[in-house]
């Protein structure tokens, strides 16, 4: 009793102790009861997202304008190069359509369900980014009212961006694949070796990914494309994640790991697509 009376008299200690107790309680409650966190999150995100969207648009416009100025000098050359690229890609597209038809015929002959690589996509804009340096989370301007749900995959034309962490009616938080907490089932496209792509963890340098649980005899070379394997059911199969930068044996030699350079430039992320589902194959 005397101790407690002294403790309460000495307010210098009381404030840090109270702060500690309150902090631990708040962490505990919001961590274990998602609805408590959501009830705080939803009104704030809904109220501030229009301002964030406006500011974000302004930022992108400024950056695009600044990037456009030096490009004026290269426009003619770039135009020529793009025309050649379009011609080449059209040829590829013709071949792909042929292969797709052939693949569908063969699958139906073998009695396999036809797979579709066409997705039901929802376009969204990045309106905010995690200001810290430890986690990689972005906010997009589409949410539950647009049919977006937790764990849906988020992509760009370059490849996989991440997956939905949580949603409100008009916004969603997306955990990027570079986040240390992220984990995606993946495979090496050439060798079909399976593994798990983790975020930026040791020894991957900042902005790179680490692919773990690769077989010790997997023949990996620099530049091998890494795609999602579809295992786990969250991320559809076949989405490009990045390419192998280097491969090394784990210290106990039973497994290999690879450092992956993501195909998406996360620093310039502006528009993304959320995969809401697969379109039915014809």
């Amino acid at each position: 009793m005397v101790f407690l009376r002294r403790l309460f008299k000495n307010r210098k200690w009381l404030i840090p102790v109270m702060f500690l107790i309150i902090s631990v309680s708040v962490v505990n409650i919001t961590l274990k009861r998602e609805y408590v966190f959501k009830s705080l999150e939803t009104p704030l995100l809904t109220a501030l997202s229009p301002v964030q969207k406006t500011l974000s648009d302004l930022g992108f416009t400024i950056r695009e304008t600044l990037n456009t100025i030096p490009q004026f000098f290269y426009l003619k050359q770039e135009n020529e190069a793009l025309k050649n690229q379009v011609a080449e890609l059209l040829q590829y597209k013709q071949n792909l359509v042929e292969y797709q038809k052939e693949n569908q015929e063969l699958r139906s002959l073998l009695g396999f369900r036809n797979r579709s690589f066409q997705y039901d996509l929802e376009a969204a804009e990045v309106i905010a980014r995690d200001p810290g340096n430890w986690f990689n989370v972005i906010t997009i301007d589409k949410g539950e009212s647009h049919g977006i749900e937790k764990d849906m995959a988020v992509i760009t034309d370059k490849g996989l961006v991440g997956y939905i962490l949580s949603t409100t009616s008009n916004t969603s938080k997306v955990m990027l694949i570079t986040d240390e907490r992220s984990s995606v089932s993946a495979m090496i496209q050439r060798t079909r070796d399976n593994g798990v792509v983790k975020g930026t963890i040791d020894p991957a340098p900042n902005g790179y990914l680490k692919m773990v649980f690769l077989p010790h005899d997997a023949n990996l070379v620099k530049g091998d494309i890494v795609i999602s394997s579809g295992l786990g059911g969250l991320i559809p199969k076949g989405i490009v994640i990045g390419e192998v930068e280097e491969a090394n044996k784990e210290s106990y030699e039973l497994m290999q790991y690879a450092i992956i350079k993501p195909s998406v430039d996360f620093l310039k992320l502006e528009r993304v697509f959320v995969i809401k589902g697969e379109k039915e194959a014809n």
Binding site: T30, L31, F37, E41, T139
Partner: peptide
């Protein structure tokens, strides 16, 4: 920051 980008309140706060 915790509300906008976190999964619980605490780490940044």
């Amino acid at each position: 920051e915790d509300i906008f980008f976190g999964r619980f309140i605490g780490a940044n706060t």
